[in-house]
Amino acid sequence: MQMLLVEDDMDLAELIIEYLNAEAIECDIAYNGSMALNLLEENAYQVIVSDVMMPKMDGFTLLENLRSMHIQTPCLMLTARNTLEDKLIGFEKGADDYLVKPFELAELTARIKVLAHRTQPPSSKIKISDLVLDLRERQAYRAGQLLALSAAEWQLLEILVKHSPAVVSKIDIEDHIWGGEAPSKDALKMLIYRLRKVVDSPEVSPLITTVRGRGVMIAAPEDQAQC
């Protein structure tokens, strides 16, 4: 994790950085708001921790500048003034969290990790054995090879993978693909057959299984044995 610490107290800054480094958090330091803006123009950070009272540019002014520049990096404000008015001003200007001095370094670290976790986008890729589904790009790979899928085949694979290793009922599949009943009696049966031909070629272990009376599932071989 990479974060920016904005703190004019050099002794406190050194103490914080030493503790965070031990927690595998890399930290750049700025001793005032102006220096912080220069660093933010050149680097991307997951979290910003900033003191409020600083020379040249205080923390609130820094925060205003960040948000006006459309930098939405989560920002935790450090302050010695434990008043509701100060906190409300900070939140109004775009602060995400507040910590009053003096504080425990363990609590600061925990709050930083929570803020960093909020900024992590959910993964767009789902992996089952050697099958990889890229939801953002709407592409699927088996053993590293791109699979050629029709729109309906993609929708079927998508619902199976998202529910893996659970069995998906045929009613749920039809509703997902066609918004209700299949257009013909054998439409789903033929679609499953075509998807199997693409995903479960003779060169690889089969992942798609029809569970009699329940529906269809896709799972790694070791998970199939449990159903």
Rank of each mutant, 00 (worst) to 15 (best):
S124P: 01
V114F: 05
D51S: 06
D9P: 00
L78D: 03
L99N: 03
D97C: 06
L131W: 09
S150Y: 00
F103C: 09
D8I: 01
I126D: 05
T73G: 08
L88G: 04
N38S: 13
E92Q: 15
P102Q: 02
E85T: 14
E41Q: 15
A95F: 09
L84C: 04
M57D: 03
L131H: 12
G59Y: 07
L66N: 07
R138H: 11
L131V: 10
Y141S: 08
N65E: 15
G59C: 02
L147S: 12
Y19L: 02
L66A: 08
Y141P: 07
A30S: 07
P55C: 12
E14P: 00
A143R: 10
L66M: 15
D96I: 07
A95Q: 13
L40T: 09
K113Q: 12
L76D: 01
D97A: 13
I48L: 10
T119W: 05
I112A: 08
I112H: 06
E41P: 02
I25P: 07
L37P: 08
K93V: 14
A152D: 13
I89R: 15
M10Q: 01
P74E: 12
L105V: 05
Q46K: 14
R118C: 09
A30R: 00
I71L: 14
N65A: 14
R67C: 07
D9N: 09
D97R: 11
A13Y: 02
V47N: 09
G90E: 12
S124K: 02
H117L: 05
L84F: 09
V52I: 15
A95G: 12
A95R: 11
C75P: 04
E7I: 02
P55M: 11
D28T: 02
K56W: 04
L5F: 07
G90V: 08
G90Y: 13
Y31R: 12
L99Q: 06
L108Q: 03
M57R: 09
N43W: 02
E7H: 04
K101M: 07
R138M: 14
G94R: 13
F103H: 10
N32I: 03
Y45K: 09
D8Y: 02
Q46P: 03
I71N: 14
D134E: 01
P74K: 10
Y45E: 08
D8V: 05
L115A: 04
A80S: 15
K113P: 00
K56T: 13
R67K: 14
P121N: 10
M54L: 11
V49R: 01
A152R: 12
L66G: 05
D96M: 10
L40R: 12
L88T: 13
Q46V: 11
N38T: 08
L146H: 11
M69W: 10
D28V: 01
V52S: 10
P121M: 08
T79Y: 03
A110R: 02
L88K: 15
F60P: 08
V52E: 09
S68T: 13
K127V: 14
L84E: 14
N43L: 03
D9F: 00
L40V: 06
